[in-house]
């Protein structure tokens, strides 16, 4: 008797479960797996936006961190192995595009349907006691003594290194690139005078800029910004050729598997758009010197494809890629 009841209950449960999939998404809690560690930029931004999205959804979104591998490959592989039902999201940033060429996994970014919250734009600054007052002066000095002026940025192949490389290509200057494990130690070194030039994001640098420890020269995006009433010009103003190589901007956000059903994507896009428009998110983005993106769907896929091609081939050129991007069919950047 009991066995029969259990069986009947089981069948009923199975029926309800299949029914639920056909019905409205989401019907149970969503898990978001951030591929970077807790407390970092990607983690913080994701926890914020997902908490806001939760307000507009009937379920909870639980955030965990699954780190390791290269380019967040452990976390991405985990999400990739889950069913494409929209109940597992991956918290990602632009840096995950290197996972393929570094041998972390054998997939490309086109398996994702990304949502981009935004990112903080990069800028080039110098130590407060450095002699250069403008980017033009710095470039002139760097051209006079190629490879002598020390420029700090996070590790080879990181977004800030790519910005530095683009700056070199667009202006013809050559620096002695000194790599650091992250932006904070690089900036610290610029303040201490170990490097004279520094490329990190505005969010990472703003405290030191406002305290007068670093002097901003130029934003590495098409438009300048105003920081505490002081204008930081765009590098594009004095070196228009930079537009061929820049901007290379952070893309912090999350993704659902591209194979997920369309109604799942639509629900997520709706919740994402509402969360992006909320005061809380907008205030947070402003306070943290982020440029909001809000891109999802095709626009976001395109951005990730562009970043993938750029990062993959740069790493390949640096000799730091263990897999040839050509074998993954990653097109060369134009």
């Amino acid at each position: 008797m009991r066995a029969k009841t259990t069986l009947a209950l089981g069948i009923a449960a199975a029926l309800t479960a299949t029914g639920a999939i056909a019905q409205d998404y989401p019907s149970r809690d969503i898990n978001a797996v951030v591929v970077w560690s807790a407390g970092g930029g990607t983690d913080t931004a994701n926890r914020l936006i997902l908490a806001e999205m939760q307000e507009n959804l009937p379920v909870r979104i639980n955030v965990t961190n699954r780190t390791g591998g290269v380019g967040g490959s452990v976390g991405m592989s985990y999400v990739f192995e889950q069913p494409a039902d929209g109940y597992t999201l991956a918290g990602i940033s632009e840096s995950v595009v290197t996972a393929g060429v570094q041998g972390g996994w054998d997939q490309r970014m086109d398996v994702w349907y990304p949502f981009i919250i935004g990112g903080s734009p990069d800028l080039v600054s110098v130590s407060s006691d450095a002699p250069w007052q403008s980017l033009a002066e710095l470039v002139e000095a760097a051209k006079a003594t190629p490879g002598e002026i020390r420029a700090g940025a996070s590790a080879a192949g990181s977004i800030h290194h790519l910005n530095l490389l683009a700056l070199e290509k667009g202006t013809g200057a050559t620096f002695n690139y000194i790599p650091y494990d992250g932006s904070a130690p690089a900036q610290n070194a610029a303040v201490a005078g170990e490097v004279q030039v520094i490329v990190t994001s505005l969010a990472e640098q703003q405290q030191l800029l406002q305290a007068g420890r670093l002097r901003p020269l130029a934003m590495l995006v098409p438009s300048g910004v105003e920081l505490n009433g002081e204008a930081i010009p765009s590098a594009f103003d004095s070196f228009p050729e930079l537009s061929e190589h820049l901007p290379i901007k952070q893309a912090i956000g999350f993704a659902v598997l591209d194979a997920a059903p369309d109604d799942v994507k639509a629900t997520l896009v709706e919740a994402f758009d509402a969360a992006m428009a909320s005061d809380k998110v907008q205030t947070w983005l402003g306070e943290n010197y982020y440029e909001a993106s809000g891109a999802s769907g095709d626009a976001a896929k395109e951005e990730f494809a562009r970043l993938e091609s750029l990062f993959a081939w740069t790493l390949h050129d640096l000799g730091a890629a263990s897999v040839d991007p050509a074998t993954l069919d990653i097109p060369k950047p134009n």
């Binding site: 407390g39 913080t44 703003q206 405290q207 305290a211 306070e287």
Partner: peptide
């Protein structure tokens, strides 16, 4: 004073502060 954590638990603390919209640093 600089937004640079001095120890491993302080790294976590920095994350927590930023989660609450507070960016430690000279401007604080």
């Amino acid at each position: 004073t600089l937004g640079i954590p001095g120890s491993p638990p302080a790294v976590m603390l920095l994350g927590a502060l930023m989660l609450h919209g507070l960016t430690p640093g000279p401007m604080l």
